[in-house]
Design a protein around this nucleic acid. Structure first.
Lengths: 117, 117
DNA sequence: CAAATATATATAACTTTCTTATATATAAAT
DNA sequence: ATTTATATATAAGAAAGTTATATATATTTG
């Protein structure tokens, strides 16, 4: 049972999904893309993003490469070969959870008592 | 912008949805129904449930009535008249967020770079 | 008939996640 | 010259949820 771990931690699988699709991305880019894709609904703050990214790095799921672009240091994050299956697993769990959540707003799905006559 | 409040607080709107549909429910009943509807995916623990319920009561969104059934005290929770629109509002926000989350796993939706040749 | 499981409400300690605030710095636009 | 956009990062605090604990009755199973 997923036991609500995914209710809190939705940002992590979103980040993993975007990294997996794009090969490599830098932090600022991730925040902007999340905002864009969600139509401004989800704001991924830096205070949320970087701890997640750093933790994923420690776990060996993402790796970093530094590049200087326009005189600024830019740090690219990408999924490691080792972390690939783990990332896909977490994304799949996330997708499963979103499907489960959908069930809760089917009209009358959770209805226990029904007027029958 | 919803700014991630809904990513964490998904249990609250789920509870409100079930209460709104069923008129009144007691705590244990809510946990069982959540488990049933989610196919065992979501376990609403008591430690999560009761603080939410008590907070909603303080806010005036739910009210309680006590009943003794089978020699046990049972506490029914229901949406107040005053809390009705607020509850519907929170449920609507929740549904909106689930729709937003769905967007993240459309294939290639978040893809920035595409192989064109 | 004893033990385990299901029913029932609730609190407290703890952990994780996320928000808000802060620090630093360059580039472009107004 | 100031503001806005780009860029990374940490720290303090709040909120949500987990796990453990307490209490108690009813039902089922061995």
């Amino acid at each position: 049972m997923a036991s609500n771990d995914l209710l809190k931690g939705m940002l992590k699988p979103i980040i993993l999904k975007l990294l997996l699709e794009n090969g490599k991305m830098y932090g600022y880019e991730i925040t902007q893309l999340v905002k864009e894709i969600s139509g401004g609904e989800i704001e991924l703050t830096f205070g949320a993003l970087y701890p997640i990214l750093h933790k994923l790095e420690v776990e060996g799921i993402v790796k970093t490469e530094s590049e200087v672009i326009n005189n600024r240091n830019r740090i690219y994050y990408s999924i490691t070969q080792k972390g690939n299956s783990k990332a896909k697993e977490k994304i799949a769990e996330f997708e499963e959870m979103v499907k489960t959540l959908k069930v809760f707003f089917k009209p009358n799905f959770g209805l226990k008592y029904e007027f029958i006559g």
